[in-house]
Design a protein around this nucleic acid. Sequence first.
DNA 1: AACGTTTCCGGAAACGTTCTCGGAAGCTGC
DNA 2: GCAGCTTCCGAGAACGTTTCCGGAAACGTT
Lengths: 344, 344
Amino acid sequence: MSSRKSKQPTIWDIAIKLNVSISTVSRALRNAGDINPETKKAVLEMAEKLDYQPNAIASSLRKSKTSVIGVMVPEFIHPYFPRVILGIQEIANAMDYKVIVMQSNESYEIEKQNIQAMFALRVDGLIMAVSRETTDFEHIRSIQKKGIPIVFFNRVSDELVGSKVVVDDYRGAFLAVEHLILTGCKRIAHLAGPDKLTMSINRRNGYLDALRTHGIAADGRLIMHSDFVEGRARTYMQELLNNPDRPDGVFAVNDPTAIEALICLKDNDVRIPDEISLITFSNAPHSSFVSPSLTSVVQPLENIGLVAVQLLLRQIDEGQYFTPETVTLDTELVVRKSTRNLAD
Amino acid sequence: MSSRKSKQPTIWDIAIKLNVSISTVSRALRNAGDINPETKKAVLEMAEKLDYQPNAIASSLRKSKTSVIGVMVPEFIHPYFPRVILGIQEIANAMDYKVIVMQSNESYEIEKQNIQAMFALRVDGLIMAVSRETTDFEHIRSIQKKGIPIVFFNRVSDELVGSKVVVDDYRGAFLAVEHLILTGCKRIAHLAGPDKLTMSINRRNGYLDALRTHGIAADGRLIMHSDFVEGRARTYMQELLNNPDRPDGVFAVNDPTAIEALICLKDNDVRIPDEISLITFSNAPHSSFVSPSLTSVVQPLENIGLVAVQLLLRQIDEGQYFTPETVTLDTELVVRKSTRNLAD
DNA sequence: AACGTTTCCGGAAACGTTCTCGGAAGCTGC
DNA sequence: GCAGCTTCCGAGAACGTTTCCGGAAACGTT
């Protein structure tokens, strides 16, 4: 009959039991000054006894600050974004910020909705990687205009202002290819990404410059620009193998590409790394599933998150006096079994 | 000098411009009744013009309802939980609920903190898989006592009351092993999980009963109970191979175990599936990385999320009159290349 | 012309906090 | 015994909504 929607205890309940005012209770709970240690103790005990839990909603409303930062990523099926989020959460929690995560599922529409939702929840700031579908950025600018700080990572656009944290694609690629050269590869192919993507371009340039630096002439036939459709990389790898003068090293633009190449090489009974070495620019911290395990250039995933949060919090604190920064993080070469030893 | 912390427009701003009351604006915005279509139109236009975005915080406070459901998972590095969350988000969004995701990182302490945080944010309900570390459930019961509905999935405990959605481990295992038998395997090993975990036990029982049903005697030496430490499964697989009478079929309790077994088999130059068939009880929808691709029993991941949300929303609506339900979902056998054909 | 209904709107109280302000005690020093 | 401090506390206004309630106007009915 009576729907007894069990109400949560509030600072009022504490105040009444103790015969003090709610201001006093509030002060005690936030351990602000202006309070007698004894009353404070009494309040804390009563709070404990009533199992009082502060209402963040009310607090946020009053303070016009939620202490929540939103994170929006295209997806978290693949291990890349989850790792970054881990880094974000770690430091955010340490700074007494809550993190809420949403995924756009690579859809512009959902991204737009989520941005709205995040703003409706009045997050103090936003860390995001835009969806692959997104070409129009008005929804993002719109909430930037409203004063919400945003830090971008991974998928960044020159059309947007704001802090950004990215990895050094060029240098990473350079390192990877140089490693192939130093371990004896003479004829190095590149399974590249779409040739309009800045990321692909930077990595290809790294590849080219590594060759040049070490006096190896680039051969256009060894560069295969794939869209990222499943199976494409495999086809290209097969083409490379069908060629009379096969490469003796392959630099793959990312993990999925490398895996396809690997499968193709195995199907052709090519010995790795003896006949052909394989190296990849990796998103994930390890590719331990596969055998042989892949030598790769890896990104400092947790670090990306960490830096992003730091930039965001600074912007939250400094407000409009903050000027956006772009931080470029370095990659690291992790040598595994798909390339030869330096000693060779 | 003046910190001009740009305030967001509120219903007040709209009301003043239009010379109406905030009640009217509110009614127009929520398209409630009791409003003249023309005034409503005017309000909507003005809202658009001022770029008004509702303040969910204030609304939640007033309504004592946030329309947010919390999701807490141990991690989302592996593809399992992200898939489930996808299912959750899809239906939750359709029902005008926002989803916020947190991960406990398999830590009891973080889980506890996150539960607090979720409650502080006054989520309307919670969908969770408890962390591996969690053996004490007081923090969960505590907020259940406060009236927050919770639906558990994947990691459930008999010690907790509440709706649960799980998959039929027994039946899935049965199907898997039966498939091995039907494709000609006579001597089937089981790389099992920890023998105290209900999940492991159920899957092992499915294995045993499948053998029994088809008149095959179980052999204790063919059952290897692994803890889930990396490398263990590989060792056990090697042991099985060292044995004079090798198995001709292997049922792996999960994907990582299967992958290790696969690598071991390849290293021993065992032909799959001709010499030994391999089947796995899978978390992920596919294991397409590996070659040969693995025949597996898969869980309806998106469905788990979907069912969980439905249960939760019913509980939110029906309140205390709701009685918890446990839903057991069926698995599906997906035949790939690591088992022989039925025709054989 | 009086009355009942419907349609629309405004006032004002909530929701649970935070925080400014002022003021009542109690203390010090002279 | 008074001025000035310090220490502690309460009153009350905000934050931006929703929603109950009452009432004014407009309409229809007899």
